[in-house]
Simulated scan of single mutants.
Amino acid sequence: MQISQLLRRKGHDVATVPGTVSVRDALAVLARHGIGALVVSPDGRQVEGIVSERDVARGLHERGAGLLAEPVSAVMTAQVHTCTPHAGVQDLARTMTDHRVRHVPVVEDGALVGIVSIGDVVKARLDELEAEREQLVDYIQSP
């Protein structure tokens, strides 16, 4: 399965914030959308970084509550692992595991077109495995 197929089912919406937004405001966006990460982007198309709940938690531990007033660019991950819509789900799962990332922005022709979480990847892989199992059962049970 390709990431483009996964995005067709999931949708292409991506929550973004500019790097100048405070960490407190970014947390409010995360809570409002019920998500674990935001793409940091000045225009909703360009990827400058990604900020996750984990980044904020580590920043709070290191710097204290004053971090909440700082810009999100202070805690974001600037070296973002991205993929294209043509990438395979299995390959992305490997990348996410190897690099210990839970959210990967999907970029095509330099523009943000979606985001995939580890949960999306696991669900897609489980769906693929179930389809394969059903095909095998049908094959074995056919006369």
Rank of each mutant, 00 (worst) to 15 (best):
Thr20Gln: 07
Glu53Leu: 10
Leu67Phe: 11
Ala69Gly: 15
Ala15Ile: 10
Ile115Thr: 07
Arg94Met: 00
Val23Arg: 09
Gln135Tyr: 06
Ala37Thr: 01
Val80Ser: 07
Asp109Asn: 14
Pro18Glu: 10
Met1Asn: 01
Val121Gln: 06
Gln46Arg: 15
Ile118Met: 14
Arg133Ala: 09
Val56Leu: 09
Arg102Gly: 02
His81Tyr: 14
Ala28Val: 14
Arg100His: 08
Val56Gly: 13
Ser73Cys: 11
Ala37Arg: 04
Asp55Phe: 05
Leu129Lys: 10
Ala93Leu: 00
Val137Ala: 03
Val75Ser: 09
Arg8Tyr: 03
Gln135Met: 10
Asp138Asn: 14
Arg100Tyr: 05
Leu6Tyr: 01
Ala26Tyr: 03
Gly19Asp: 10
Val72Leu: 02
Pro105Asn: 13
Arg58Pro: 00
Arg54Lys: 15
Ala37Val: 07
Asp109Val: 03
Val17Arg: 12
Val101Thr: 04
His103Arg: 05
Leu67Met: 13
Arg100Asn: 01
Ser73His: 06
Ser4Lys: 08
Val116Thr: 08
Ala37Lys: 03
Lys123Arg: 15
Ile35Met: 10
Gln46Leu: 15
Leu7Glu: 04
Leu30Ile: 01
Leu67Thr: 13
Ala111Met: 13
Ala87Trp: 02
Gln135Lys: 11
Ile140His: 00
Asp127Val: 12
Ser117His: 06
Leu68Ile: 11
Met1Trp: 00
Thr97Ser: 00
Val75Gln: 09
His81Ile: 15
Val75Cys: 09
Ala124Pro: 04
Ala78Lys: 14
Glu53Thr: 13
His99Gly: 01
Arg125Ile: 15
Thr77Met: 11
Ser142Thr: 03
Arg133Asp: 00
Leu112His: 05
Gly66Met: 08
Ser117Tyr: 07
Arg45Pro: 12
Glu53Gly: 09
His86Asp: 14
Asp138Lys: 13
Ala111Arg: 15
Ala57Asn: 08
Pro18Lys: 07
Ala26Gln: 06
Val40Asp: 09
Leu92Gly: 03
Gly110Met: 10
Arg102Thr: 03
Gly88Met: 06
Leu67His: 12
Val104Ile: 10
Pro143Tyr: 08
Gly88Leu: 12
Pro143His: 10
Leu30Tyr: 05
Thr82Ser: 13
Thr95Arg: 03
Val39Ala: 03
Val56Asp: 12
Pro105Ser: 06
Ile50Gly: 02
Leu27Met: 14
Leu27Gly: 05
Arg125His: 06
Val101Asp: 00
Val29Lys: 00
Asp13Ile: 07
Ser41Tyr: 12
His33Gln: 05
Ala37Asn: 04
Leu27Ala: 12
Arg63Pro: 04
Val89Ile: 12
Gly19Ile: 01
Ile35Leu: 09
Ser4Gly: 00
Pro71Ile: 13
Gly36Asn: 03
Val121Pro: 07
Pro71Gly: 13
Pro85Tyr: 08
